[in-house]
Simulated assay, not measured.
Amino acid sequence: MKLLLAFVLTFWISLILQADVQEVGKANINSILIFSSQKGLNSGIYHFKNRGISLEIYHLPIRYDFPSKSAWNYYIKGDLSFSRVSVSQHTLQPYESVIAYGTSIDTYIGGLGGGIRYIFGHGFSASIGGEILYSRSAVKLGEANVQNTVKNLFGNDFNTNLTYEFEASLNYMDVFNEYKIYADFEYKLYETKTNFSLGELDGFRSESSVMSFSTGFETPSIFDFGTNYLTFEGRVYEYFLNGTVVNTTGVDRYTTMSGTMYLYVPNQYDYIERFFVEVSSAQSESIEGYNIGVGFSMKF
């Protein structure tokens, strides 16, 4: 009888820990795209203060806008990413079960999508599009004070995930005294389907969304050398999150400030307009994050 009770208790604890890891996994899949920069090759680290979770991101977003002589403009986009979610302290989930220190989830993502942009005139434009992202996640559990009852629920196996992203934006850009002035509204919705290897947890769905408002400026040339020149861009973003990512990270709103240095090379390359380095910081009561990115913009 005691042996049976021990077995039932062990199995019950295992399922609780699996559910917790599943919740963190849901957020990890979407967080790579929600919290990382969309400008160029970038790397960032984010600490979710209310959950004792850290997120490390390496992300390469790609976008190409097809040349167009009309108000309609088509684009294709892609994403290549790696992230690692780590439990930096014993953390309590909303339903009061513990994920152990040392638990980590590695996720690899590749995505392809596209959309359409319409230019209204007077500086206004709007875009709508989507992307399908394929990802694989591996979970490694830390010690959980159950005397090694469960060391690694998933071993080294990878779980496959499929994410559908929908995006819409309204953008404004004007020039005032040689300064470019920006204002943008964006909405993105992510739905993820995941296949876990254990029957009790086979296939879950999660939804996360993010709405953002941003404003900023880009200076005229601040330093010239030949035909090349440097400019500086400053931006402030306000993000509002909803869905699974909020339940797991404890973040529903945060502010990002970014500074970008552009090197324009108008006569050196046929298809490259400028190179850039971007540094940004995300802050709120629930999150502290830093990101640095490099890349280039194409000209048409």
Rank of each mutant, 00 (worst) to 15 (best):
G243R: 12
K188H: 13
R274Y: 09
S135Y: 01
T107E: 05
T107C: 08
S31L: 02
G114Y: 12
G115E: 04
N50W: 14
F296K: 01
P220T: 03
Y164A: 07
Q38S: 15
E288H: 14
F300Y: 13
H90M: 13
N30Q: 04
S125Q: 14
S286T: 15
I119S: 09
G40M: 12
K299S: 03
E96M: 06
Q22R: 14
F223Y: 04
E23N: 13
K299E: 06
M211K: 09
N30F: 01
S206W: 12
F196C: 00
Y237H: 13
R205S: 14
Q38T: 14
G25F: 13
A168N: 15
N42R: 06
Y75I: 00
V210E: 06
P61Y: 00
Q283V: 14
F154I: 01
N267P: 06
V265T: 09
E96L: 10
V251A: 00
D252G: 00
H122R: 15
S88R: 11
G243L: 14
Y254F: 13
M173D: 12
N73S: 09
L153E: 04
T215H: 11
S31W: 00
Y101V: 05
Y75N: 01
F11Q: 11
S258N: 03
Q147N: 07
F11N: 09
R205D: 15
R253T: 05
S286H: 15
L263N: 05
I13K: 08
